[in-house]
Computed example of a mutant assay.
Amino acid sequence: MSYKLLCHPEGMVNEDRVKAARDFAEGELSRLGEAWDRGTASPEAALRRIIPLVAPILVPQALGGHGESVATLLRCYEELARRDIGFTCALAVHTAVTIATSLSPNAALRDRILPGLMSGESIGAFLLTEPQTGTDATAITCAATPVAGGYRLSGEKAWVTNGKWADVFATFCQTEAGSGAKGINAVILRRDMAGLSTSDPLDLTGNMAMGTTDARFQDIALSDEDVAFATGTAFRAAMYGIDVARLGVAAMCNGALAGALDVAISYAAGRQTFGRAVIEHQAMGFTLADVATGLEASRALTFQAARPFESGQPVAALTAHAKKYACRTAFEGISQAMRALGANALKRGSSLPRQLNGVRVTECMDGTGEVQNIVISRALRAGL
């Protein structure tokens, strides 16, 4: 039994693609998500299979992509996260790298890297955060020291989603110490480069399917051909990528909450207490009704935030609203949905503990709620 989503995005959505994502989620994510989260199986092969369906959605057809709408991408994220949000986060990070590569002014690099990112031959990772630098991206210290014909790269990165299996590392680094955003550039590293190493996957409370690691660079030799975004443009590209990621997180949280409603409604409709189905008791029926209201409100806000993306002009404050609200609503909503199952909700087989933990992880991705409030409060001050 599935909860029927009521709020729908404006504009064109490729429903065939959304259905393919739904079928993939029902066929693979429902079956394997628990094993991935426990670390007893690897999602890498499944990730490479789904990439050609989703990662090229926003890439123009002239570059070999699908050339479709942001709304289509968000609907695919919803359907996939409905069954496993951790896996969908891994896919979303790869997709963000794919989108960023398609926008690189370095045509030779783009044409060399982009096909593999769209086909699944390559998996991408997005490296901005450092062990001592998170919220303030202008303070990164990973050093790309200019040399004749290129750079020598040294430093560390933290919280690298897909770090366990990535082939391509989109890395933001500082070319001039103390210059802040002006000195940041973005380079593309390959797994086989001498001096690049990753840690064992971090043992997280949820979303182990993201294969999150730390990374270290020791005097890696780079040429100018490895630069995706030069100084003066890279920081803006990073901020655009974060806006894309925040919108994706909102959609994934909405999908995870819809999946929790699926489980809760099905269980509550099939279990009898005091001669009636659990869902027919007013207390439980009203509880799930409130969860559904929160979900539809969050989806409406997310799709509203998506509209400016269609023209390539995201509104940062609106995206921050969507990300903050979706994370909070999904965590609270899944917690309430678990009440319909009673103690059975605590069993891993119900999928709800895994999804609840996964949503909690997304709260820390691409800026916490407090970071979103910074963005929103700046917009409020600008309107004075």
Score class of each variant (00 low, 15 high):
residue 169 F to V: 01
residue 169 F to A: 10
residue 170 A to N: 07
residue 170 A to Y: 11
residue 171 T to E: 05
residue 171 T to R: 03
residue 172 F to K: 07
residue 172 F to I: 01
residue 172 F to E: 00
residue 172 F to V: 03
residue 173 C to T: 08
residue 173 C to W: 01
residue 174 Q to Y: 03
residue 175 T to N: 13
residue 175 T to I: 09
residue 176 E to F: 02
residue 176 E to C: 07
residue 177 A to T: 15
residue 178 G to T: 08
residue 178 G to N: 03
residue 178 G to I: 07
residue 178 G to V: 05
residue 179 S to H: 05
residue 179 S to P: 02
residue 180 G to L: 02
residue 181 A to H: 05
residue 181 A to L: 06
residue 186 A to D: 05
residue 186 A to V: 05
residue 186 A to H: 14
residue 187 V to Q: 07
residue 187 V to E: 00
residue 187 V to M: 05
residue 188 I to G: 08
residue 188 I to H: 02
residue 188 I to F: 07
residue 189 L to E: 04
residue 189 L to C: 15
residue 190 R to N: 09
residue 191 R to F: 04
residue 192 D to T: 12
residue 192 D to V: 10
residue 193 M to Y: 09
residue 193 M to R: 13
residue 194 A to K: 15
residue 194 A to G: 10
residue 195 G to M: 01
residue 196 L to K: 06
residue 196 L to V: 13
residue 196 L to S: 02
residue 197 S to D: 09
residue 197 S to C: 09
residue 198 T to W: 08
residue 199 S to P: 02
residue 200 D to G: 15
residue 200 D to Y: 12
residue 200 D to T: 14
residue 200 D to W: 11
residue 201 P to R: 08
residue 201 P to I: 11
residue 202 L to W: 07
residue 202 L to H: 09
residue 202 L to G: 10
residue 202 L to K: 13
residue 203 D to I: 11
residue 203 D to E: 14
residue 204 L to C: 12
residue 204 L to H: 09
residue 204 L to F: 11
residue 205 T to N: 14
residue 205 T to M: 12
residue 205 T to W: 12
residue 205 T to C: 13
residue 206 G to E: 03
residue 207 N to R: 11
residue 207 N to A: 14
residue 208 M to Y: 11
residue 208 M to F: 11
residue 209 A to C: 02
residue 209 A to W: 06
residue 209 A to N: 03
residue 210 M to W: 08
residue 211 G to W: 09
residue 211 G to K: 06
residue 211 G to N: 05
residue 211 G to V: 05
residue 212 T to S: 15
residue 212 T to D: 08
residue 213 T to Q: 00
residue 214 D to M: 14
residue 214 D to N: 14
residue 214 D to A: 12
residue 215 A to W: 11
residue 215 A to Y: 07
residue 215 A to D: 03
residue 216 R to F: 09
residue 216 R to Y: 08
residue 217 F to L: 01
residue 217 F to A: 00
residue 218 Q to G: 12
residue 218 Q to N: 14
residue 219 D to H: 15
residue 219 D to P: 12
residue 220 I to M: 11
residue 220 I to G: 06
residue 220 I to Q: 07
residue 221 A to N: 12
residue 221 A to Q: 12
residue 221 A to K: 15
residue 221 A to M: 14
residue 222 L to D: 07
residue 222 L to H: 02
residue 223 S to C: 02
residue 223 S to H: 02
residue 224 D to Y: 07
residue 224 D to T: 15
residue 225 E to P: 04
residue 225 E to I: 09
residue 225 E to T: 14
residue 226 D to W: 00
residue 226 D to S: 04
residue 226 D to G: 00
residue 227 V to D: 02
residue 227 V to T: 01
residue 227 V to I: 06
residue 227 V to R: 01
residue 228 A to W: 01
residue 228 A to C: 03
residue 229 F to M: 03
residue 229 F to K: 05
residue 229 F to C: 03
residue 230 A to T: 15
residue 230 A to N: 09
residue 230 A to V: 11
residue 230 A to Y: 08
residue 232 G to T: 01
residue 232 G to E: 03
residue 232 G to C: 05
residue 233 T to V: 13
residue 233 T to N: 11
residue 233 T to Q: 15
residue 233 T to Y: 12
residue 234 A to F: 03
residue 234 A to Y: 03
residue 235 F to R: 08
residue 235 F to H: 13
residue 236 R to I: 13
residue 236 R to C: 13
residue 237 A to D: 00
residue 237 A to V: 06
residue 237 A to L: 00
residue 238 A to H: 12
residue 238 A to N: 10
